[in-house]
Design a protein around this nucleic acid. Structure first.
Lengths: 129, 129
DNA sequence: CTGCGTGCAAACACTTTGCAGAAAA
DNA sequence: TTTTCTGCAAAGTGTTTGCACGCAG
C-alpha cells in the first residue's frame, strides 16, 4: 500500500465531517468543501472519502436508501434511518455487541463485525404528522 | 395503488427465488429466468423484484457490497456477508429482536424495524486459506 | 374494452478511473 | 527527484423509466 501524503483537500474533508452530526452524502461534502476549495472535484471528494474510510478515520454508512453517507464519528455506534425524511440519526444506546456471539453459535465461519441500522419514523416527522 | 394482475413472468421470478437459498442479484435472476422466458427483459425483472419486495413476498438485501440481492425466504432472519467471496449466507440464530427495545429507550422517534448484517470470512473461505 | 404488464432502449444516479499536471516529501 | 494527489472528463455499474404493444380481467 502506498505511502500517505498530506493534502489540504483531504484535511478539509475530514474536518468538515468532524463538524457535523448529520451524515452527509459525498455530494453534500462536495458542495460544502467547494466553498473553501472552489476548484475541488467530485472525484477527489470520492477518492478521499474512500481513502479515509479505508484507514478508519471516518465511517461509511450504506442505508440502501439512495447515496452512501459518511460519518466523522468513528466510535462504534448504530444509526436510525427515517423512512419519511430520510435523515440518518446517531443512536445513543447500550451496546448490542453480544449479538455477534449469538450469531456465531451456530455458524462455521468467522464473524468480524456487524452493521445494524434501525428504521422507522423520526421524532420530527412524528410531530409534523 | 394499482390493482395487481397475474403475470407468468412475475410468478416465475417468485418461484425461482423460492427455489434458492443463496441470494441472487437481479442479474442472476434475469439470466436464469431467461431460460424459461427467453424474451424477458432486465427491466421487467427489476420491476417485479421491486414490486414483490414492496408487497412483502420477497426480501431485498442491501449489503453495501455491489448489487442488491433478493431472498425468497421472508421469515425474519439475518444475513452474513463474506468479505472474501462475497457470498451471502442465512444465519440460523436466536432472535435478537430485543435490540429494538434497547435502541428505543433513549430515542424519541418510532422504530419500526431493523436490519443487521454480519461480516467476516465464511467457512469455505477459511478452509481455502 | 380497460388498464396493468411487457420488451426495448434510453436515461438515470451514484461512483470509479485514466490521464497529465501540481504539490508534497 | 520521486511519488502521491488533484482536476477534469469519460466511463462504469446498477437501476429506473417512457413508450407502444400485449395480455389479463
Amino acid at each position: 500500500m502506498p505511502k500517505l501524503k498530506y493534502s489540504k483537500q483531504r484535511e478539509s474533508i475530514k474536518e468538515f465531517l468532524a463538524s457535523r452530526t448529520d451524515h452527509p452524502t459525498a455530494d453534500t461534502v462536495y458542495m460544502n468543501i467547494r466553498e473553501t476549495f472552489p476548484n475541488i472535484s467530485l472525484g477527489t471528494v470520492y477518492r478521499n472519502l474512500s481513502l479515509l474510510s479505508d484507514i478508519g478515520e471516518i465511517m461509511k454508512i450504506t442505508t440502501g436508501d439512495g447515496a452512501d453517507r459518511f460519518d466523522g464519528n468513528t466510535t462504534p455506534h448504530n444509526h436510525f434511518v427515517c423512512t419519511e425524511c430520510h435523515s440518518v440519526i446517531d443512536l445513543e444506546m447500550d451496546s448490542i455487541d453480544n449479538i455477534v456471539e449469538i450469531a456465531g453459535r451456530n455458524f462455521d465461519g468467522h464473524i468480524a463485525g456487524y452493521v445494524t441500522n434501525f428504521y422507522g419514523v423520526c421524532g420530527d416527522c412524528i410531530k409534523k404528522s
